[in-house]
């Protein structure tokens, strides 16, 4: 038997939200009978744009049913923007973990959610389209999907990719292709990794110049996309004082924005010791 957690067994034995929603706002269907598992997810949005109800139908093993059940519980109350950020690891973590060979069940959950959101955004017209070229023909897995799962889950072996996506688990002909994808992603990651720069002591002037440059080149363009802006007010030692403008000024998520969109790139590009504060010193 598989080493399922109590939470997996609970969601398998007592699945939450089984069924389909009548007149749903989004429908996502992934998998097939041939693959051995399939999931149909439907959701309904409330007046505030949050998911008020989600239901599933699943053909699959105990962990596929548990992953589907967990997914419907997780997304209730989320906005579509939040739901779109749910990863397969989130689903696995919610269940207290899944056996390695069963991680593809969590990936199926994430794919169905994505398909349902796409379906909603296109006004109910889009069914899930397999983007890009098929890498594994046995299980219908695209190269793009493999890339994504490898990057998100930091996978490094063909066997892991098979556990997470099923790719390579049939005839095995695509195993070389999977190995190539892993190699390519590893190379890109290595290239993107921050180079080990000698710890140069920046003068205050150099530091402020680099902070301003990072804000102009990396941070402001991202905030502008959401109708926001940022202004550098002051720098005191390692503390950076900024003001969020535009849409960002009253945004509920401004603390998260400050950390993820402002502080993180400043630490990466200027100095890991920087702390960002909103407002005047």
């Amino acid at each position: 038997m598989w080493e399922y957690t109590d939470k997996v067994l609970d969601h398998f034995r007592n699945p939450r939200n089984v069924g389909t929603i009548e007149h749903p706002d989004g429908v996502g269907e992934v998998g097939s009978l041939a693959c051995g598992d399939a999931l149909k997810l439907t959701f309904k949005l409330g007046p505030d744009g949050r998911i008020v109800d989600a239901k599933f139908q699943t053909f699959g093993c105990a962990s596929a049913i548990a992953s589907s059940s967990a997914l419907t519980e997780m997304v209730k109350g989320m906005t579509l923007e939040q739901a779109a950020k749910v990863t397969n690891q989130d689903i696995a973590e919610y269940l207290g973990g899944l056996p390695e060979q069963k991680m593809h069940c969590s990936v199926m959950g994430r794919e169905a959610l994505e398909a349902a959101i796409d379906n909603h955004r296109t006004g109910g017209t889009s069914k899930r389209i397999l983007a890009g070229k098929l890498l594994c023909t046995c299980f219908g897995v695209t190269e793009e999907e493999v890339r994504r799962v490898v990057a998100e889950n930091h996978l490094s072996t063909v066997e892991e990719v098979t556990n997470y996506t099923k790719a390579g688990g049939g005839c095995g002909k695509c195993k070389d292709d999977i190995a190539r994808v892993i190699r390519e992603i590893r190379q890109t990651e290595a290239a993107a990794a921050p180079d080990i720069r000698p710890a140069v002591r920046l003068t205050m002037l150099q530091k402020i110049k680099m902070i301003q440059e990072t804000i102009d080149k990396d941070i402001r363009p991202r905030l502008k996309k959401d109708g926001g802006d940022i202004e550098l007010l002051d720098v005191d030692g390692n503390t950076v004082y900024v003001a969020l403008r535009g849409m960002c000024a009253n945004c509920q998520m401004s603390r998260v924005t400050l950390r993820d969109v402002v502080e993180q790139p400043l630490r990466e590009f200027v100095s890991p010791d920087l702390v960002v504060r909103e407002g005047q010193p």
Binding site: G36, D37, G60, C61, A64, Q101, K102, F139, T162, K166, G169, G170
Partner: peptide, 9 residues
């Protein structure tokens, strides 16, 4: 079934 065999086939 595939799932119970421990392999995917």
């Amino acid at each position: 079934s595939a799932c119970s065999s421990g392999s995917l086939e």
